[in-house]
């Protein structure tokens, strides 16, 4: 697989405190990679190092197959980003900020600026001062700035922060469109796991500055253990009936009175009807579908396998 970003033993210490330790990331060309972790886990620090804002204490970063050092900062021409929150020169207008960004990158295309603003649905604000923008508008403008030059890699730290539900959906659609149509690789971080689940191809779970796991969403889906959980008035009778009448064998009792059925050949409503017919009182029944959220918490609680 062609790695667009690769880090080896990436470590950052500040004033004796280890922010991230021995991070070995592998981000493939053309994928949407999600960095998952609680606040303070080290996601932003990793992103800052990948974008040259801060330097690693030790370890190496490879971007586009080249070692990223002070001498190879030209690589950053191929990277767009929003780190922490969208930062602008507040006393300048939206268009002045975007033009300034383009001039630093040696990119001169007014149409590109207009197209980027259209993509994030920001119209008629070109001459408005950024200090008058809401957080949501700044976030959109930040995304416009990150995509303006159509970089090969875009790094977005919490891109949906401050956005309303429509803005969140627009951003998601925009990321998917840019990834699909332009082949842009994305690294995203978010604490909204459900949002991430809808966008990313692969995730890296970060906890306490360590990368616990890198896994595709597809693999998580394969590992999923959906089940129906049941609380009845007579556990033993229920078990007997399920095993002998419905021929369900893959189930277990938890907490002494709850039955978890992993064999999902019978639906939740079929099981309910069946038990009612056999005069068993159902106090609780629900189907549980494991999600990225479950996977995330499981990794955090287990400590994961550090990669």
């Amino acid at each position: 697989m062609n790695n667009i970003v690769k880090t080896t033993g990436l470590t950052k210490n500040i004033k004796g405190k280890q922010l991230v330790t021995n991070i070995n990331l592998h981000i493939h060309k053309g994928e949407i990679y999600g960095l998952l972790g609680q606040n303070g886990a080290g996601k932003t620090t990793i992103m800052k190092m990948l974008t040259g804002i801060t330097k690693p204490t030790s370890g190496e970063i490879e971007l586009f197959g080249q070692r990223f050092t002070d001498r190879s900062k030209f690589i950053l021409k191929r990277v767009g980003s929003i780190i922490e929150y969208p930062i602008f020169f507040e006393h300048l207008t939206a268009i002045e900020n975007l033009k300034l960004h383009c001039e630093y990158l040696g990119y001169y295309d007014d149409k590109g600026i207009k197209q980027a603003l259209d993509m994030v649905h920001l119209k008629g604000i070109e001459d408005k001062y950024v200090k008058e923008f809401s957080l949501g508008m700044k976030q959109r403008l930040g995304i416009a700035r990150a995509i303006i030059t159509k970089p090969e890699l875009i790094i977005l730290d919490e891109p949906t922060n401050g956005l309303d539900p429509i803005g969140i959906k627009d951003t998601r659609d925009l990321i998917l469109m840019l990834n699909k149509e332009y082949g842009i690789t994305f690294i995203l971080s978010s604490h909204i796991l459900k949002e991430m689940e809808q966008v990313v191809d692969r995730i890296g779970v970060i906890d306490n500055g360590k990368l616990l796991n890198e896994v595709t969403l597809e693999d998580i889906r394969k590992q999923r253990t959906d089940y129906i959980e049941l609380l009845t008035t007579d556990v033993q009778k229920t078990l007997y009936l399920l095993e002998n009448e419905l021929h369900i064998s893959n189930m277990k009792i938890i907490q002494g009175n709850r039955i978890r059925i992993y064999d999902l050949t019978h639906s939740q409503s079929d099981i309910s009807k069946f038990l009612i017919i056999h005069e068993i009182g159902i106090e609780e029944i629900q189907k549980h579908t494991s999600s990225l959220e479950d996977y995330f918490y499981e990794q955090i609680n287990r400590g994961g396998t550090i990669v």
Partner: peptide, 15 residues
């Protein structure tokens, strides 16, 4: 103070 310096650090120009 405004952290706008971090924008400059992200450009392909040495500090």
């Amino acid at each position: 103070k405004n952290k706008t310096i971090s924008l400059s650090f992200r450009y392909p120009i040495s500090r």
